[in-house]
């Protein structure tokens, strides 16, 4: 029998707020929480760079190098831990769908191409000088794969009940139920 996790008393019926959900996610699994947080940051910054680039121009340098670059490195570490956690957990394998597995395949390809793009950048070229040289011959298509695969993932993930639809549903619920809660308080 597993030992009880310390779960704080919740109110019934439950309240849906971003704080409650964040608390719950952190309690359940920190790795899980970090994975979601970092993935959201990477996806949003990536989309901003590609879609709003012509308008935002040079100000994106910081976003690209810090929020998409260094966060990306953190994400890779977290993602590896996350995947190992899933692989070792029977319950998570039970509740994750096939479409989630497809998502993970997408993430792995995105990570690989992302590393290939970033290998020549400032800190890594000094730390791992061999890396950039080793993967440069296959470099011609990396950006195309990195960018187009993100959009393909957006399309697939939205049409099958997968990561992005899950994200949209969460966002909608948080916004919607907070509004509802205010209404009931007024009443």
């Amino acid at each position: 029998m597993t030992e009880d996790k310390e779960v704080p008393t919740k109110k019934y019926p439950p309240e849906f707020t971003i704080t409650n959900i964040t608390k719950g996610m952190v309690r359940t699994s920190r790795v899980d929480f970090l994975f979601h947080l970092l993935m959201a940051i990477l996806l949003i910054t990536g989309l901003v760079i590609d879609l709003l680039g012509p308008w935002l121009g040079g100000s994106l340098l910081v976003i690209r190098s810090v929020a998409h670059g260094y966060v990306g490195v953190l994400f890779i570490i977290v993602f590896i831990v996350y995947i190992l956690r899933i692989a070792s957990s029977k319950k998570m394998k039970m509740v994750l769908t096939q479409t989630n597995t497809v998502d993970f395949a997408f993430y792995i390809i995105l990570i690989v191409t992302g590393v290939m793009v970033a290998a020549a950048n400032a800190p890594w070229i000094d730390i791992l000088p061999g890396l950039a040289a080793a993967i440069s011959p296959i470099g011609a298509y990396t950006q195309a794969i990195h960018v187009s695969l993100t959009y393909i993932w957006v399309l697939i993930s939205l049409l099958t009940p997968s990561g992005l639809l899950h994200g949209f549903a969460c966002t909608y619920l948080i916004v919607h139920f907070r509004r509802n809660k205010n209404k009931s308080e007024k009443r």
């Binding site: 597993t2 996610m25 359940t28 699994s29 899980d32 957990s89 319950k91 998570m92 039970m94 509740v95 994750l96 769908t97 989630n100 009940p161 639809l165 899950h166 949209f168 549903a169 969460c170 909608y172 619920l173 919607h176 139920f177």
Partner: peptide, 19 residues
Amino acid sequence: GRPETLWMYACARCGECVD
């Protein structure tokens, strides 16, 4: 209804409930 349907998709797939 709307909340139930959305919750189906929003489910975190963490598996805590299974345990």
